[in-house]
Design a binder for these strands. Structure first.
Lengths: 223, 223
DNA sequence: TGAAGGCTTTATGTATACAAATTATCCTGA
DNA sequence: TCAGGATAATTTGTATACATAAAGCCTTCA
């Protein structure tokens, strides 16, 4: 655990299917609302339906796809309401998480976080979009890893962040959001330095609500 | 949805297995840490291994059981840390949920909630333990159902509450906790009447933290 | 023409057979 | 007696076959 948003993949057929289907989803390969045929996925992945079904069930429990009764699963039509809910939950949970992190704050941590912010800023200045994303992600990963022992909270936050990836669009609007992010991250660092629990929770909440607003813009401009 | 903690069960084999296994767990039929053999469960449920595996996977995603690599699942040894984490999450999420409920407050709701509290009180006075549990549960259900449209939040809270059932012991200590609960529920009603978001969130958090402390006592006395 | 009903096709839910991996057992030797 | 390892038994992971329920299609009748 650590660098990316991935859990470590075993080399089992189920995980193979899981990885394949998930990345296919994130690449936008499935039109929202369309039934995802198990057999087809099985053929594409090169395994049988059984592990595909496991993988689908897992993805559903992570909320990336939705069960449609006896009509299989589909990539959820991303209602704005659902997107909002995910961001709201992130705000609440990551806000709480930041509270838990306060006792673990030390110079090394502040240094790591500051590096993420600085590098992201550099990337913005030199126009390297992908790098901006990488460093902003790393910022949250760094905080996230500190609560890895709270397995439920940790997994929840990971799942929600995975889900949110679908709203990542490589647009100018996204860059605008990235700039906001950097500001938010700076505030988070200050709050951690101050060490006030309520403040930390609040700052993180506001940061993620801002991210929600930016994602919202990105989607709107998309339609 | 509504009365109990159950989602409505389809009459499919998977759901049959799910129900059976879950109630078996909650009855304490599985010693913590012991491997739950799929074939055995299949035989007891009267279905094949396939739906049993589905059910196990679902229970694992709800956190009631834990996967042990390639060695199947087991009822998680309930470390105190894990119990604490579940209550903490409930506090955070249900606290946030109460915030969302404020705009929906009306006389009918207040009436329903008040009835739950009064009936629970009556049940305590007449020593009907099971009734106490029923009405306290109904109190939370009533609130919970109001956020049913926020599906993620709703399901999360349902899962966490299901999980917490394992700490329900029919002891005197539990009755003591129930009394605390009733006080907490009264405070929640007041907070809702006042309609201050921060207050509502805080009152609910404190209520659940108290429940945690009581559950803690119950467990301790058990050892 | 249009709609209703039944038939065919397709897809999911379930059962079962097999493969791979883990666990238990037993045998051997020091 | 105990350690070590080979072998048997059990158990999970995967593939496949079958049952059942949707969905699509076609025929027929008003």
């Amino acid at each position: 655990m650590g660098n990316g948003l991935e859990k470590n993949n075993q080399h089992t057929a189920t995980d193979k299917a899981y990885q394949y289907i998930k990345s296919a989803i994130l690449c936008g390969k499935f039109p929202p609302g369309e039934r995802m045929a198990e057999e087809k996925l099985a053929a594409e992945t090169g395994v049988s339906r059984t592990p595909v079904r496991s993988a689908l069930s897992r993805l559903a429990s992570e909320g990336l796809i939705k069960p449609m009764g006896r009509r299989g699963y589909c990539f959820a039509r991303d209602s704005l309401e659902e997107m909002e809910e995910v961001f709201d939950l992130r705000a609440v949970l990551e806000g709480y998480a930041l509270r838990l992190i306060i006792p673990m704050v030390n110079d090394r941590l502040i240094e790591s976080l500051t590096e993420c912010v600085d590098r992201a800023q550099e990337a913005i200045d030199s126009g390297q979009r992908h790098q901006v994303f990488e460093w902003n992600t790393k910022f949250h990963d760094t905080l996230n890893d500190l609560i890895a022992d709270k397995k439920r909270l940790y997994n929840l936050v990971c799942d929600l962040r995975k889900y949110v990836l679908r709203y990542r669009k490589d647009t100018l609007q996204y860059i605008k959001g990235a700039v906001h992010s950097i500001d938010g991250h700076r505030k988070i660092i200050y709050a951690l330095k101050l060490g006030y629990p309520d403040l930390c929770e609040r700052v993180m909440r506001e940061h993620i609500m801002e991210a929600k607003a930016d994602a919202y813009q990105t989607i709107i401009e998309d339609r």
